[in-house]
């Protein structure tokens, strides 16, 4: 009876969540990461209500307050046309997050599906075709290629996202490919196959759920890299165009006024660091979390 009681307790969903949180929160840094990411996301969502001068996010000029250093009415100072840097930075989170989210939410499914197919068909022609194309993409330097694609398509936020997506899916393809090639030989896949399961079931219900944890971890870590790459593209003028309050664009225009009006560039830079650090810490935490979970599964 005690065993059954224990099973009942373990399988109750709320308990499962509490157990996961306990294990996740044992690593302090991952909690810091989660809180950081949470703050950034909240700031982005509620930017119009939080920013002290929401109108400054757009094309506004207010030369009377231009180039003011940080003070009580403008905590981060004002830029060369008198807009509040704090307000623009808060709005900047929106563009950074959107960039990462859009790129990953397109690149991930594409890469995962292709990797799944190639891994399952390992050794057949489909595998070779998909993986050789993937290899070609992986051989190209991502930033240079993104610059090139973006330059061809023309500078805009949308085109920057397209360029990044094109360069991003191969990483997921390869990650999933490696896992599927191993997982498809698992006994439970053979057991399901013998039980009459068809290929879509084997791929989507037996193999894919066992890759999700590593895909999720990579997505969190990649979010940081995507934000950086997006900011880089904006910095060189290929991403969001002024007056869009994109962090990269703000750094680019602010860098013209260094070092005298340092606050125009430094605060957006710090915002980028804050965001990237948060996603990195969260990603590392998730990786440890899933690694422990897998160990526990192996132990049984």
């Amino acid at each position: 009876m005690t065993t059954l009681q224990r099973i009942e307790r373990a399988s109750s969903r709320r308990d499962g969540f509490r157990r996961s949180w306990y294990r996740f929160s044992k690593n302090r840094l991952s909690v810091v990461g989660l809180v950081t990411v949470g703050i950034v996301v909240l700031l982005a969502i509620f930017a119009p209500y939080i920013a002290p001068y929401p109108k400054d996010a757009g094309a506004v000029v207010n030369f009377r307050h231009a180039n003011e250093p940080p003070n009580w009415s403008h905590l981060f100072g004002t830029d060369d046309v008198g807009r509040d840097v704090l307000s623009r930075t808060i709005f900047g989170f929106r563009y950074s997050l959107m960039m990462g989210a859009v790129v990953l939410s397109i690149a991930t499914p594409v890469g995962v599906v292709l990797g799944l197919l190639a891994g399952y068909m390992k050794g057949r022609w489909l595998d070779s075709v998909i993986m050789r194309i993937t290899d070609i993409f992986l051989a190209l330097p991502p930033l240079i290629m993104a610059l090139l694609i973006n330059a061809v398509l023309g500078p805009s936020l949308i085109n920057a996202m397209i360029a990044m997506t094109i360069m991003w899916w191969p990483w997921y393809c390869r990650l999933v490919y490696g896992q599927v090639a191993v997982l498809r030989n698992e006994t439970y896949v053979l057991a399901a196959e013998m039980g009459g399961a068809r290929r879509p079931h084997l791929l989507l219900k037996e193999i894919l759920p066992n890759c999700i944890s590593s895909v999720l971890t990579k997505m969190t870590l990649d979010m940081a890299i995507a934000i950086l790459l997006g900011a880089s593209l904006s910095f060189v003028g290929l991403g969001a165009q002024p007056p869009t309050p994109d962090l990269g664009t703000m750094v680019a225009s602010g860098s013209n006024f260094l070092p005298d009006f340092w606050w125009i560039a430094i605060f957006p830079v710090m915002a980028i660091i804050f965001t990237v650090l948060g996603f990195n810490l969260l990603g590392d935490g998730l990786r440890d979390f899933f690694a422990v979970e897998e160990q526990e599964l192996d132990k049984q």
Binding site: T187, A191, A192, M194, G195, G196, A197, P209, N210, I212
Partner: peptide, 27 residues
């Protein structure tokens, strides 16, 4: 049908027993 040496390896770790048993019956 086949039964294996490692019973733990023959059941998918990420789903409940019921999910898999029901799937097997459905197939």
């Amino acid at each position: 049908q086949m039964i294996f040496q490692e019973p733990g390896a023959a059941i998918n770790p990420v789903f409940t027993v019921g999910d898999q048993l029901r799937a097997a019956i459905r197939f």
